[in-house]
Each structure stands twice: as structure tokens, then as C-alpha cells.
Write a protein that binds this DNA or RNA. Sequence first.
DNA 1: GTCTATACGTGGATAGAC
DNA 2: GTCTATCCACGTATAGAC
Lengths: 197, 197
Amino acid sequence: MVHSVAVIKNTRERIMAAALDLFAERGVLGTPVTSIEAAAGLSPGSGSFYRHFKDRQELLAAVVEREITRVAKLPVDPSTTDGTRASELAAQLCNDLAFLGELRRLIAILFWERGKAPDVAERVRSLMVERGVELGIAELLLTDPIDVVRADPSAASTVMMCAMVGYFLSMEYFGTPPAEVDPDRFTRTLARLLVRG
Amino acid sequence: MVHSVAVIKNTRERIMAAALDLFAERGVLGTPVTSIEAAAGLSPGSGSFYRHFKDRQELLAAVVEREITRVAKLPVDPSTTDGTRASELAAQLCNDLAFLGELRRLIAILFWERGKAPDVAERVRSLMVERGVELGIAELLLTDPIDVVRADPSAASTVMMCAMVGYFLSMEYFGTPPAEVDPDRFTRTLARLLVRG
DNA sequence: GTCTATACGTGGATAGAC
DNA sequence: GTCTATCCACGTATAGAC
């Protein structure tokens, strides 16, 4: 029974896809429903949007939920987490940078929404931490750690995470890192500060 | 000749002071002129605002300019930059964290304005970099540096700056650092990763 | 399910009295 | 220099035809 399933993605999908980009780019307040309609191929100003969502807030919630789910399901690029050498950690950090790239829109929306959505902030934060710190990296740091890491492993993890987040956000919001250092040099240097070899 | 100078700060000042906070808190788009008037003790909805500024954009420019000037003039808390020991760097980093605190509103406005004000982004960025990296810290790192720092000093500086910025922004936007690490532990650990002793 | 048309509210900005 | 009053643009949201 085929029921002639629509070949073209249905409108609800197109609205969500368009809104994700627009919300990340201009913020929720900065993207009127009219422009969402336009971006979704609907006539701007017609209330066609409202056949699919109650209002902009409901759309926002749906979009964020969907994107969190998508990102959470992304496979954890392994890159051999068994050894302890700096080059392996550097590779792991490169993966983490890519993961932050996937979180880009969510982070942008979060920043636009500032205090307005503490629950979203918390969920995005734990996505970052779980992926970046808990899952593999912490153990990597704990394998034959240097003195500083041994002295306070969670502080060292925090430094690592903050450096990554700071680098990523500098790129996103300043258009460039504090100095002119490319991702490869950055992750390599960070890794060498944290582990032996 | 006293000319009876106004004891109460004049309205233009009050508007700018109010706007700085409101813009940082809710963004420019998120703070109607009416609310600026209210916050400045004027009747909201009266156009009294427009006797002092042409429009909101002009106000924004004035406010940002003024705040950049204020922050740039802040004295560079010295905290003895002569030695090379980790505790001294940590102290310096604590000062830097305080300095980022002074930049708080500018950074917030910058984030709200995203791509809209690349010139402001550049100026805030250089305020950060000049204060944090160029001015004292770079030399500190170069005095009897550890291998990693010697190998690529500007990459190491970048890691340091990014860690600081990442820590600061995590506090501001997530309400907490990636893990529960207070500023003191954070700066101490970061310092120990970067210098001998 | 999308359109045209429209009612309504909020906020930007000006006019003119005081 | 601040007020009241007002105009206008824009965006939200609904009604009803197709």
C-alpha cells in the first residue's frame, strides 16, 4: 500500500530546516514568521505557517529538540583512544572540534536566547561535556598523567574543554582565534601541554 | 563662576548608562526605546529620547565607543610580572579574568550583534589580546619556557587565551564552567601547565 | 494546505503644548 | 527638555475563499 507518499519533503520539515538556520543566524527575535515562511517556500505574510505550528515559540522548541536529538546520535569518531601519546590526544581534540562544529547552530541559538532557556543551556552543555570530557578524554588524561594532571584531573579537563570552547567561539564570533593559529597547531599544542610524549 | 552645574547627571548620561546594561542584557533588538526611556527616568513612549539621540543605532555606537574607551583606560594591575613561577602567572591570569569581567557588557553586546558590527568585534578582540597576551604574559611565557611553549610560543599563548575566554564564556552563558572548577583552581592549573615550577 | 485579506498590537519616530 | 498625542511601519495571528 503506497498511499503516494509525498516526494517533496513536507512543509513542516521545510519550516524546521529553514528555522534552524535562521534562528542560529539572526536569533529568534530577529526572524519574523514572515521570513520563515519565505525561506520555506510559502507566501510571506500568509499565515500558512500557523497550519503547522502554534507560534514561533513552539517552532523553536521543536527545532531545538530535533537538533539535540540529531547531534546526540552522531557516532563518536573513535581515533584510537587506547594510547597516551600527544598525537593521539591531538587527533581526539580535532574530532571534538568537529563535534563543536555540529553543535554550532545549537550554541548560536543558546547564545541568542541567553537566560531565556536555561534548560536548553544545560542540555547543550552536557552534550559538550559528555562528549568532550567524560567520554574517553578523561581516561586518556589519567593514563600515565603528567604531574599537573595528576594533581587535579578535573581542573585539567576543564582547562582542556575551556581551551577548545574558547577557540571555537573565537572563530565563530570574532572570525579568528586570538592569534593566527590554525586548528591543527592549536590542538597539537594543547595536547602536548596535557600529556607526555 | 559656578553657572549652577547640574547636580543630577544629565539625561544623556542616564540614557547611556541604562542602555549599556539593557543592550548587554537583552540585546539591541530586544530593548525598545520605550524601555530605555523608562530606565532613564523618562516617560516611556514619549519621544524624549529623541532629543538626545537620533535613533537607537546612534545610541548604540555612542555607548560602545564610551565603554571601549573606559575599559582601555583601566590600569594594568601589575602583580609582579618579573618572575617565571606558576603562582605568578596564576595571579596574572586572575587579573585577566577580572579584566574579562570588565569587558562583560561589551562582549555581550558583541554577541548580540553577531556579524552586524565587525569593527566592534575587532576592537574588542584586540583589547583582549593586547591586554591578555601581548602585554606581559607573552614575555612571562618566554622566560625559561617549557619545551612545548618554546616550540611554538604563539600557539601556547593562544591556548592560554582560549582557555581563559572559554572559562569566562562558559560562566556567562552556561552559568557554570564545564566542570565545577572555581576560578582559583582553574587559573592555578592553567598556569602550571604553561610554566615551570 | 495554501492563498488573500485583514484585524490587531507593539514599537519607532515626529508634532506641538508647556 | 519633557510631556501628551499621534502617525506609521512592521509583524502576529486569524478568517474564509479556493
